[in-house]
């Protein structure tokens, strides 16, 4: 079991948390302006890197706040946790969601 450092409560066992998938995928400003492909990119496509991955967690059995964590998908080591207000750790690329995901092209 992972120990996750909630930015509000400190280190707590993984069982207190819920998982929310890739971080920094914002709900599009104006969904109606998007093409079907672009909207499908937001709905269905997420990155799945081998290595560091910024993802969302929620401290469900604690403060119930959402926050972000950088986790290495190879080792499960969490190198940083931060709130949406906090600075994004260096090296974390925010994916753009208003453009089609590469995988969805030509689909």
């Amino acid at each position: 079991m992972l120990t996750i450092d909630c930015p509000h409560c400190g280190p707590r066992p993984e069982t207190e948390f819920g998982y929310g998938g890739q971080a920094h995928v914002a709900y599009p400003e104006d969904p109606s302006a998007l093409t079907d492909e672009e909207w499908a990119g937001y709905l269905f496509y997420r990155d799945n890197p081998r290595g560091e991955f910024a993802e969302r967690w929620v401290h469900s059995a604690g403060c119930r706040k959402w926050f972000n964590a950088v986790r290495d998908t190879r080792t499960y080591r969490i190198s940083a946790t931060y709130t949406s207000a906090g600075p994004v750790p260096a090296g974390i690329v925010r994916p753009r969601t208003d453009v089609p995901h590469p995988v969805s092209k030509g689909a």
Binding site: G18, Y27, R56
Partner: peptide
């Protein structure tokens, strides 16, 4: 409840 809190916190703070 989770759903309401998620949208409130993450998209419409």
């Amino acid at each position: 409840l989770d759903w309401l809190e998620e949208w409130s916190q993450t998209e419409w703070p």
